[in-house]
Nucleic acid binder design. Structure first.
Lengths: 126, 126
DNA sequence: CGAACTGTATCACTGGTATAATACAGTTAA
DNA sequence: TTAACTGTATTATACCAGTGATACAGTTCG
């Protein structure tokens, strides 16, 4: 059973997207593996204190990306292989960093300054 | 007069927030300076192809942050000093990079990997 | 079997975003 | 002066994302 104990919700983005991101990051980190059981919609919604439909939306989108498989009546399971894992990792890293790079370049930061800030914040968050 | 020729709208975030971000990034980069004239609400709305009320919302919020000053009948002007500029720069850089650092750490990336990706994407976007 | 779970679907409500159409008052410049 | 601009305010409308509440059908297991 996948744990959500490290899930920290924020109100900057929709909850259903945060759930998706949490799963993807778990897969990319190797903490979530193929065959792992997802919590049921109702259980997770109670755990996070949100509506079951919100969780359902996350699961539906994850299923459309073929990252989980659901059969009516049974629990949903994660379905990933090394290729999917690598793709997710590249996607998450790419999109995140690319947005930051564009923002920093537009405000006139140098590459050295960017690396310096990254290193500083990296240590702080450990 | 502040130019919006490099403004590239996207549908990921509200337009009024994109306008605010564009101004802030311009200030942080030093391209937009104290006393610079903002385009009128009507002119900018026509330029961007959006409703005047959307632009008005941006300007109102910028004024609440004391980044522009408006007097009825006259054009709105940018009101910044070195302290405000530094604060904006730190805020934009901090929030952006912090989000990336958290995401990358959660998916098990190393600091060296993060720097490597940053350098690669930095060159690509030049 | 039957109770308790599971996934799934449908409807309604809310808030934020964007648009639209005006209206009014102050400033600017020909 | 006066016409054309400026900022500001109001009201109404439409749309969509997010959430809430409920119902139904299939699976699991004591």
């Amino acid at each position: 059973m996948i744990s959500f104990e490290h899930f920290i919700p924020n109100d900057q983005s929709p909850i259903y997207q945060q759930i998706i991101l949490y799963i993807k990051q778990g897969i990319a980190a190797g903490q979530i593996r193929d065959g792992d059981e997802m919590p049921s919609r109702r259980v997770l919604s109670a755990l996070l204190g949100v509506n079951p439909n919100t969780v359902q939306k996350s699961y539906k989108l994850l299923e459309e990306e073929h990252l989980i498989a659901s059969t009516p009546g049974a629990k949903s399971c994660v379905t990933v292989d090394d290729a999917k894992k690598a793709a997710i990792r590249a996607d998450l890293l790419g999109t995140h960093v690319k947005a930051v790079v564009q923002a920093m370049q537009q405000m006139g930061a140098t590459k050295e300054e960017a690396i310096s800030i990254l290193e500083t914040l990296w240590e702080e968050n450990l």
